[in-house]
Design a protein around this nucleic acid. Structure first.
Lengths: 213, 213
DNA sequence: TTTTTTCTACTGGTTTTCCGGTATTTTTAT
DNA sequence: ATAAAAATACCGGAAAACCAGTAGAAAAAA
């Protein structure tokens, strides 16, 4: 007689009990999968991996006690053969890339379907780096925002940008900085040129989107 | 013989299948609760409420097709006796308050426990406005930024605000919306008045800080 | 010490915004 | 049905922003 195939041992780390519950319920239907443990923080999974083994860790990157990226690195150090799949709400390209750099074998958004989830688990086990469909889309099209890097501003420009965001006019800014309003005007136009925008309103919008305000 | 008590009919709206699954599994264990329907977008719950009834809607505020706040208002209009509990990841005080202003009977973060969830459902049904523990904490310590309430904008004002943020002039906005540029000017001035700002740049700044853009 | 960048400032003109009103119509709520 | 809120539109005028250049001084980098 033949042994039953060993099940894939999965650990879940997520600070939302609801999400854990959801993942668990979705996964227990799979015959080849066994839930090895569920944890709401980094401490939980770490102590677990000290005495137990897991083939795959489903990891949320927003956790109460530790940044998910770091935790991912730690897990790979503690147990190099364990694969980490990040399951997150963050759809920023940079975060996805960072996860992979920290040793994750894949990245899924929380709106992924069961098929995507199990698909990614198996893909990862066969050595590939995998993404859910939506994540693939994000990777394939770097948004314009990320293409043209953040404009390089001078000290004076940053100063003036900040004052503009406070609703000051060129005249007021000039007074505050002890320079001619005409100079302020020049800086202001240079700012608009650097951000490729048409007026102050759009300038503030662009600047805030790039976290410069 | 006595009839069994009628069950609480609950509808779930969340764009994450995993979350829906989690909530469902947590709630079916409760004897006095029945899941009436689950939806991943606003259109789903709207058409459902057209022909069905629900006592409580568990509502996520980030949905693919419509803003959860608006949806909440719509639900209360369609079916005033239906209670809405917002279940969200956003822990900003302003968003919590806005939800209540839009007719929600409570606000829970997604990391709430089952006890909190069922507790809030029953509290809401008995006419109270309820929050999960963490949300209560957030409410109890207001940050300076959030003290001055979020201005209540009309649909048109939101439209114009958005176009302003894209750098459009009043004339361009007028053309896009098929109204007179003079009308756009009026709206624009009303916007500045509501935000208590002096010009478009500061308006955009204020609006982004209040998560309205 | 050159070279480059940044900051400064100007002319002159056009466009747009901003202000303080007023007022009708349409939509929504009571 | 009526009241309130929202959307529409206008006038006239002042203030500010925006555009297209040019250009000298100061500071930073090579």
């Amino acid at each position: 007689m033949s042994m039953p195939p060993p099940k894939i041992r999965i650990a879940i780390v997520d600070d939302h009990p609801i999400v854990i519950e959801g993942l668990k319920m979705l996964l227990v239907r799979e015959q080849d999968i066994a839930i090895a443990g569920c944890f709401v923080d980094g401490a939980g999974i770490r102590s677990f991996l000290g005495t137990n083994e897991a083939d795959v860790v489903l990891l949320d990157i927003t956790l109460p006690d530790i940044n998910g990226m770091e935790l991912c690195r730690e897990i790979k150090k503690l147990s190099p053969s364990t694969l980490v799949l990040v399951i997150s709400n963050h759809s920023e390209r940079s975060i996805i890339m960072q996860s992979i750099q920290n040793g994750a074998s894949g990245y899924l958004l929380k709106n992924a379907s069961l098929e995507e989830l199990t698909g990614c688990i198996h893909e990862a086990l066969s050595g590939n780096i995998t993404f859910s469909k939506e994540v693939k889309d994000i990777i394939s099209r770097p948004t314009k925002n990320e293409l043209k890097g953040v404009p390089q501003l001078t000290k004076r420009e940053r100063q003036i940008l900040k004052l503009l965001a406070e609703g000051r006019t060129s005249a007021m800014i000039a007074e505050a900085l002890f320079i001619s309003p005409l100079t302020v005007d020049t800086h202001r136009r240079n700012l608009m040129q650097k951000f490729e925008v048409k007026n102050a309103a759009e300038l503030i919008m662009a600047a805030t989107q790039q976290q410069l305000l």
